[in-house]
Structures are given as C-alpha cells and as structure tokens.
C-alpha cells in the first residue's frame, strides 16, 4: 500500500511539474528557428547531474560529470562522481573506460546510453523531430520549450515510456532530459554551465 501511495505521489508530482506547459499546435516556426540556431552550433560542453529516481524504492541515485559534444557525431560523457567512468562516441564507434579497463560497447543495456546521447546530438544538430524512434509533441512555457518524445518502436518502448527534452527559448540549449521508464522509474539529466562553440580538441574524443 505504501509503495502504491509513493508511486501515486510521484506521478502526481511529475504531472504537476509539467502542468505549466502548453501545447504548441504548430511547431513549424520552432523547427525553422531551431534549425537555424543549430546550424551555427559546432560544439558544446556542459556539466551534468544525473538523478535516477527509483519510485517504489523511494530512492534517488545521483551521479555527476562532464559532457562534451562536437559536430557531427563526437560525444564524450565523463562521470566524475561518485565514480570514474568515461564513454566516448566517435562516429559509429562507442568506447568505454572503466577504471583501467577499456572496451567497446554493445548490447541492449547500453541502448539507454546511446539513446540519451542520440537525443542530445539530435538537439545539437536540430534534428530532434526527425528521430524515427519517437513521435514528438512540442510544449512551451515562458522560458523553455519541452519536446515530448513518445516511442513508436517496440524496442524503444521497452526502454522508455516517454522522454522530455527541455530547451531554453532563444538559444535552444538543452537544460534537461527526462526519461520515464515503463516501470515507473525516472531519470533526469540536468545540464549546467553550458558553453557553446568553444574549441574542443579531438583528443577529447579518443580513449587510449
């Protein structure tokens, strides 16, 4: 009973957070403006805080790190707390460094990583509405846009119930990615200290 009550409170809280957003019926002007801004974005670096909420366990797992993106498809995701873990996407190659162990990624368990970063890359490149794994609805409040992405493929539906990407109006910088899982668990990636178009050395996107 307590678990169901906790889930109810959690669901109520999540719904309350998004109650302020209003649907944007025609996203065409957003898309053209978004594409124009994105075309001028060549790199981004940011701090991130990842919070996974385990609804039925009343538990939050928090980790922090650095995120780097360089056009077209270079991503570095570096967890620094409470553990060291590094993932680099370089084109089609995905490499991880866990302690002294370096390896390539594969398997369904890493789909979540790849999807998080695919969404980030889609946002940087302005192609978030073209991701064929999701149907997208656009919402807005005074300061931000919220792209609500609902999986349309069974593979993606197994990972996510829906994903929200929240961007600042004007700059279209992603501030938060929220991932809701079928189980009721919820992961929030919060980005801060974003820096656009700073020089990022290619060495950042290589694991040795």
């Amino acid at each position: 009973m307590i678990k169901f009550f906790t889930l109810f409170i959690f669901t109520f809280f999540v719904n309350a957070v998004f109650a302020q957003y209003k649907l944007v019926p025609d996203a065409s002007s957003f898309k053209s403006e978004f594409a124009a801004v994105s075309s001028k974005t060549s790199s981004i670096s940011a701090d991130f805080t990842q919070v996974k909420t385990l609804a039925l366990l009343s538990e939050k797992l928090t980790s922090k790190g650095k995120f780097y993106f360089k056009k077209d498809n270079l991503v570095r995701m570096e967890y620094t707390s409470p553990y060291q873990y590094l993932m680099v996407i370089n084109g089609s190659r995905v490499s991880i460094k866990d302690g002294n162990k370096t390896s390539s990624m594969s398997g369904r368990s890493n789909k979540m990583f790849q999807q998080i970063n695919q969404l980030m890359m889609d946002c940087m490149r302005g192609t978030v509405f073209e991701n064929k794994n999701f149907s997208v609805r656009l919402f807005e409040d005074a300061d931000t846009y919220l792209a609500e992405m609902t999986p349309v493929t069974s593979q993606m539906a197994g990972l996510f119930k829906k994903v929200n990407v929240i961007m600042k109006k004007g700059s279209f910088v992603v501030g938060q990615v929220q991932m809701f899982e079928p189980s009721g668990d919820y992961t929030s990636m919060n980005y801060s200290n974003q820096k656009i178009n700073t020089a990022l050395a290619d060495a950042l996107f290589a694991i040795k």
């Binding site: 307590i2 990842q50 996974k52 385990l54 366990l57 538990e59 797992l61 980790s63 967890y79 553990y83 873990y85 993932m87 991880i96 866990d98 368990s109 890493n110 789909k111 979540m112 990583f113 998080i116 990972l159 991932m179 668990d185 992961t187």
Partner: peptide, 24 residues
C-alpha cells in the same frame, strides 16, 4: 559495470538493485 544498491526496506527485507551508469 554499474552501481549496486543494497537497501534495507521498512518491512526488513533487503533489496539489491544493479544498474549501469546510465541507470539501466
């Protein structure tokens, strides 16, 4: 690799939850 959470629940049961770094 990932994170293993071991938690004592209010009913004195013990939960073990293993996720990868992204929370999967």
């Amino acid at each position: 690799s990932g994170v293993l959470l071991i938690k004592q629940m209010p009913d004195s049961s013990t939960r073990l939850l293993f996720t990868n770094e992204a929370g999967f």
